[in-house]
């Protein structure tokens, strides 16, 4: 529309203004914690009266916070490593199966992303409790994988739909076993979607709090869980420091991946 009326300055200004407002609306709640995290005060106050790095020191100096960070990073990595291959295999079978059966399987696989997190967490708690897995890293991992599979599927399904399956048949006819054909022909061509799915699965786990609150315990507590607990017990700008770091890490990772996709 704008290309058609390049001289319409008013329309341009209005559009830019509107876009800027939307951006601000989306970004401000995230960005407001940045100044909070550099505050000297013991309380969350805005705007801060003086600035310091004491809350960052507090975070990096605390064994509890560091354990939470380690758990979250390990859990995120494991979640991506388990969920993405599972999602790939599920997407391949849905793609090959087609028809109503595929739609039904897709419905089941995507359900965890639609069901309210609290229901999923309660259900998972009982299932894991019966197996004696509550409080274990494995238990939380199961929960996060369940949540990450739909996310990875949403990325991989359309990519596979565009893929030319004759190539797999060609590879098979040339002597490749099924796994060799998937690993050598499909995966390299879907590299970008694969990377996105891995990142999304990782971030899903990193960001997850409800399941962690129910299932994780003690030294297996994830960072989001510790943050919630800390908010309940005391209002402490350490939370703001962690949030700022978290946001920065996510922005950097997403930027790297996006820029790699471009090139």
């Amino acid at each position: 529309m704008l290309e058609a009326y390049p001289d319409n300055r008013l329309a341009r200004i209005l559009l830019w203004g509107f876009s800027a407002l939307v951006m601000a609306f989306l970004m401000l709640p995230t960005l407001v914690v940045v100044p909070l995290s550099f505050s000297v005060s013991d309380l969350l106050e805005f705007p801060p009266r003086a600035y310091s790095l004491r809350w960052y020191e507090n975070f990096f100096g605390s064994a509890t916070w560091m354990a939470g960070l380690r758990t979250s990073l390990i859990l995120g990595t494991l979640t991506a490593m388990v969920a993405v291959p599972l999602a790939l295999l599920a997407c391949i079978s849905m793609n090959r199966l087609g028809g109503k059966a595929a739609s039904a399987i897709q419905g089941v696989l995507l359900a965890p992303s639609i069901v309210p997190g609290i229901l999923l967490a309660i259900g998972l708690f009982f299932v894991l409790a019966a197996q004696g897995l509550v409080g274990t890293l494995f238990g939380v991992l199961v929960g996060h994988v369940v949540l990450a599979i739909p996310v990875a599927c949403i990325v991989l399904l359309p990519a596979l739909a565009r893929f030319d399956w004759n190539q797999v048949q060609a590879a098979r006819s040339l002597g490749a076993g099924w796994a060799t054909a998937v690993g050598g022909i499909i995966v390299p061509q879907l590299r970008i979607s694969f990377l996105s799915a891995t990142l999304m699965a990782f971030l899903t786990s990193l960001d997850e709090s409800v399941i962690s609150i129910f299932v994780a315990s003690g030294h297996n507590s994830t960072l989001p869980k510790l943050m919630f607990l800390s908010l309940r017990d005391q209002i402490d700008p350490t939370i703001a420091a962690i949030s700022t770091l978290w946001t920065a890490i996510v922005v950097v990772v997403v930027l790297i991946v996006t820029l790699r996709q471009k090139s």
Partner: peptide, 20 residues
């Protein structure tokens, strides 16, 4: 027999070359 064990050369309609 599995397709990869048959040692048959196949030319597909759309060629199915590996673009990567």
């Amino acid at each position: 027999l599995a397709p990869n064990k048959r040692d048959i050369g196949i030319v597909f309609q759309n060629y199915a070359l590996f673009p990567h």
